[in-house]
Design a protein around this nucleic acid. Structure first.
Lengths: 197, 197
DNA sequence: TCCTTTTATTGACCATGGTCACTTTAATAG
DNA sequence: CTATTAAAGTGACCATGGTCAATAAAAGGA
């Protein structure tokens, strides 16, 4: 069986994450270079890869943590009272992802998470997102504010699908002449959640 | 103003595309290497980039052509009679994209196409896909087979969103233990297109 | 303490996409 | 036919992520 990692290893890992987070703060996710991380952390390149597998692995930890933080905030607020409020609650997450294509790509690559074992932050964050959305959806269904003919989980996944759709469009256009994703999402959710009249 | 390209250039371009297509046939899209293309086409690396901008540019031409061929077939068949048939009509496209992550990524990157000028094959193929879906949707709405409360174009985009969602999940799992995308799509379309009872 | 085994780290090396100042080839003017 | 200009093509070079046999450091046992 595999032993617990030594102190040194944990320190190295922490240092790598710390440096990487700083660089992201300075230059954004698309400005992150593996070479710069290891240089500033004072370790060899191979060390980073032994810790995170590949660059995506490092990004996953950083971005996963960001998403978790966003989810904390979402959970701390009161549940939305209708579909429009639900859409509004998603705005911070949409804005976060819309900020950098690297984030979008990374999250998309890992988004099969709904079933895979949650050994990873991104995977865990997806499970949490579905759970949270479902928790919002159930009372809305009970109150007849949104459709009741589909299970909350399917509606939740649908919301994710539309969110990704809108974000995908966002990254294909000039960002100046087009509404931000959080706003563009509204009509889709409207149509998706609308109760049968 | 820019002149028409000379014969030589057209020949070079054709040769590059031909070689690239052959390699894709032999090794799939993920096996395509720029170096191999230029080597087998007998040109320098820079030439390829001067023709297609970057590797994605080359992929876009190849994949765009594939998609156009699929659309030709879809158009040649009679229109679907209900939501389930509509889902079935999408199967070839889903299978095509599901075959290789490179295809999925490329199409996603260009999928903002609905508004951009169709100077590119992929862009054009997206416009065509939306148009085709809308053409399928309108009669179904008129016949009361699917919901009538949303414009065909929005329903069409929604279908694309769900298709991408399902494909995204597909590439996150072991492909052996999970239903193929074409099949996984059904419940979403069902819920999305279902007429108000 | 000294030897052995496991864990952690190293850095030269590789793969691959992409750039660009320069050369070659074709078209066009005089 | 030659000179001039524009288009086409070239390949050395770069950026960046990733590999892996070799080495150093720690842990464990005698």
């Amino acid at each position: 069986m595999t032993r617990a990692p030594q102190k040194r290893r944990l320190e190295t890992r922490a240092r790598l994450l710390d440096v990487a987070a700083t660089i992201v703060r300075e230059q954004g996710y698309s400005g992150l270079r593996v070479e710069e991380v290891v240089a500033r952390a004072g370790v060899a390149k191979g060390t980073l890869f032994s810790h995170f597998g590949d660059k995506d692995g490092l990004l996953a930890v950083l971005i996963g943590a960001d998403v978790m933080r966003l989810l904390d905030e979402m959970e701390s607020r009161d549940a939305p009272a209708d579909a429009d409020e639900l859409a509004a609650r998603l705005a911070p997450h949409m804005d976060y992802v819309a900020q950098d294509r690297v984030i979008f790509d990374l999250l998309l690559r890992y988004s099969g998470a709904t079933t895979t074992p949650p050994d990873e932050v991104v995977t865990a964050s997806f499970l949490r997102q579905v759970a949270l959305l479902s928790d919002w959806i159930r009372p809305l269904q009970a109150a007849g504010k949104i459709r009741r003919d589909q299970p909350p989980e399917l509606l939740a996944e649908g919301i994710q699908a539309f969110a990704n759709h809108v974000l995908g469009l966002w990254f294909c256009r000039e960002h100046d002449t087009v509404p931000p994703p959080a706003q563009a999402l509204a009509p889709y959710l409207q149509a998706w959640l609308q109760p049968a009249p």
